[in-house]
């Protein structure tokens, strides 16, 4: 139990409140509902405990599930993202990265961060919406939902990064 834990808990609470009150009500073009809860997992620094990361992912997913009647969908996808995050981050690490490198817009640069956030969000949304549809009958709709909401969530990630930096 140290200050990082409480900062994460605070971040989780704020993100969940925003997600449930605001982002769950966004339906851009009728499909794109961004899951910004994944942003929290993308912020974990290099070398943090993988089991800890998995548990954070699971908890944020299950709380989201309870509030949105999506039993298991978000917890499965957030756990998957938590599993992939360290590997994903490794792909975009600068050559001289510290042991406790923290992925952010300022430390990675715009384009690298954009790609990092987009891939992460793509994993999250692809799992979530595939579990939601659970059929390949209307795969075009599912693809539209995955693509558009992942893109929207990436933009929101970058907006959050900018907001946090200039605050």
């Amino acid at each position: 139990m140290n200050s990082t834990f409480f900062i994460r808990l605070l971040r989780l609470t704020i993100l969940l409140i925003l997600q449930i009150l605001v982002f769950n009500n966004i339906h851009l073009m009728g499909y794109a509902t961004p899951l910004l809860i994944g942003y929290m997992l993308l912020c974990f620094e290099r070398g943090s405990s993988r089991i800890g990361l998995l548990l954070w992912g699971f908890v944020i997913g299950i709380v989201f599930d309870v509030f949105s009647n999506t039993a298991g969908m978000a917890s499965a996808s957030c756990t998957l993202l938590a599993m992939m995050q360290p590997k994903l981050m490794q792909m975009f690490l600068p050559r001289d990265a510290d042991e406790d490198f923290k992925p952010s817009l300022s430390s990675m640069g715009f384009w690298k961060y954009l790609l990092y956030a987009f891939l992460g969000m793509l994993i999250l949304h692809a799992t979530f919406y595939s579990l939601d549809a659970f059929t390949i009958n209307d795969w075009q709709l599912t693809l539209i939902a995955i693509g558009s909401s992942a893109a929207l969530a990436t933009l929101l990630c970058i907006a959050t990064e900018l907001f946090v930096r200039f605050k």
């Binding site: 993988r50 548990l55 299950i62 039993a71 298991g72 499965a76 756990t79 599993m83």
Partner: peptide, 21 residues
């Protein structure tokens, strides 16, 4: 590989709750 076991366990919990819905 302990994180893999935790990962698989959590995914199983999620999927069980998804399908028992």
């Amino acid at each position: 590989y302990k994180h893999w076991f935790v990962f698989i366990m959590l995914e199983i919990v999620s999927l069980v709750s998804l399908f028992s819905y």
